[in-house]
Amino acid sequence: MTDLVLRETRGEAVHLVLNRPDKLNSLNVPLFQALDAHVKAIAADPTGVAAVVIRGAGRCFSAGHDLGDIAAGERLPEPNYQSKVIERLAALPLPVISAVHGHCYTGALELALAADIILAAEGAKFADTHARWALTPVWGLSQRLPRRVGTAKAREMMFTCRTYSGREAEAMGLANACLPDATFLEGVDAWTAEIAANSSFSHAANKRLLDQTDGLPLPAGLAHEVYRGEGVGPDMRERIAAFAARKS
């Protein structure tokens, strides 16, 4: 693994930090390879990891897909490589959080949308600028963005290429919360601590349940929950006993 993506532990969360600050963390193939290595390592052994946070080093989350690489012609390890890395990140059996400060444009927005939760700093700037460059999404934005903000708002973002602040992202549902710039990392830590206090069994099972029923008609979704839900986790008795002991 190279230093293009750093792995840091903060509490019970693992932070994967995009680390091309001199290039505003623009996304090139080597960075995706570094990210992929970390994601595969976590998937192989998630022991002790309560959540995964994706964030950027330096001034921003990421300015997006490296346009210089696009112009030069990227050499991919396999077809559709970046979209496969993003899918592997999204499929981790853990809560995934995108912690966005500064720029989060286009390809970076596609990466951020792979997360279960997006936390925005007040100074964050979100935009989809595919249309500015005569491009269309190939890393999942056309599917994930409308599922977050609704079709009408997704069309607005895609057609206008407009930039939205952290507060605007929160208001439209793109971000789950907008946090002060000065205490952004501490705010992210508070979210991950709240998640870590709950059952990792439930997090993984609930994530699978949500993914497997996405888009199903209500009766089919209800049947899936009732008959194919994973039910009781191995830590249920311990958690209930601890609660009872506090109440006594």
Rank of each mutant, 00 (worst) to 15 (best):
R59Q: 15
A112K: 06
R246L: 13
A57G: 04
L76M: 13
V149Y: 06
G229H: 07
R148C: 02
R20M: 01
G48S: 05
S202V: 08
M158F: 12
L27C: 09
I70E: 11
L174G: 06
S83E: 15
L179V: 03
D3C: 06
G64M: 10
A241S: 11
E230N: 11
E110P: 00
R155H: 13
E87K: 13
R10G: 00
Q143H: 14
R147Q: 14
L35H: 03
T136M: 11
N25S: 08
D36N: 15
A193K: 14
S142V: 06
A245N: 10
G58Q: 08
K247R: 15
G73M: 07
N80M: 10
G68W: 04
D22H: 12
Q143Y: 02
H15R: 11
L179T: 01
A220D: 15
P21S: 12
D69N: 08
L222T: 11
L109G: 04
N25Y: 10
G221L: 07
D36E: 11
P95W: 05
T192Y: 07
D116G: 04
P180L: 02
I240D: 05
R228P: 00
H38W: 14
T213Y: 05
H38G: 02
E156G: 02
P146F: 03
L109A: 11
A197E: 12
A44G: 08
R10N: 08
E12M: 03
P234I: 03
L24T: 10
A90C: 00
K207A: 07
Y227F: 15
A131N: 09
A169W: 09
V52C: 03
R55K: 13
H103W: 04
E8L: 13
F32S: 02
H203I: 05
S199V: 02
A71R: 13
R144T: 04
L135N: 07
D235W: 02
F184E: 05
A244T: 10
N19I: 02
F159K: 10
G102S: 03
G221H: 09
E156S: 04
A196E: 06
H65K: 05
D3A: 15
M1W: 00
Y227W: 13
G48C: 03
